[in-house]
Amino acid sequence: MRIGLFVTCLVDLMRPRIGFATLKLLESAGCEVIVPETQTCCGQPAWNSGDAPGAVALAKKTIAEFEGFDYVVSPSGSCGDQIRTEYPGMFAEEPEWRDRATALASRTYELTDFLVTVLKVDSVPGDYEGTVTYHDSCSGLRSMGIKKQPRALLAKLKGVTLKEMNGCEECCGFGGTFSVKFGEVSAAIAERKCDNILASGAHAVVGGDLGCLLNIEGKLRRMGDETTQVLHVAEVLAGRV
């Protein structure tokens, strides 16, 4: 099984270790993983900012880079959703591209969904010990149906206890460019999320999208919390990379 790893621009720039954790999880499950080196961004920032031509150009680029694989896997529900849900609708007037987008969409998965739904993994290599609380990121949860998958995988780690926070399905306030266009509102929403994280008493907040995690970590630290770890689910599941 040949997997194309869509790293995401944010992991590339900010947290390469999430990319390596994803690689480890897929490879330890027996997949052949290829990382197309020309990949950049799925185009979501352009799409969500109203720049349709820019988004379409990046979608075509991504489709061409990844359509040769059996599956495309990404450590992000947000980027995965862009490919799976948004791409097919972007080519109303280009039926050939629409077909290619639709074919790619049906083979595109968020990491935890892929591990649970397609690979049906029995175990994961991680060795994290502690209490964690899970933040459900919006696109993954409401568009891709990512809810049980990360929890099922975390349950395979003996040292991990999951303690749900209040409002785990509520938005953290990131919203991509929203976070820099309406910084004050965005940070105020993040504060409510962080209050719930802190009230859960967990050692770490875990999530599946780096954008949300950067927002949450930045807010926790500004609020004076120095101890709560903020981790991508791939890091927890993969252990040391």
Partner: peptide
């Protein structure tokens, strides 16, 4: 992106990109 900093910090990156390390 000064708006980001109005109410929160921005976590530091690792320093090299995934593609470089890979």
């Amino acid at each position: 992106a000064p708006e980001w900093s109005l109410g929160r910090d921005f976590p530091a990156p690792q320093g090299k990109t995934f593609r470089e390390l890979y």
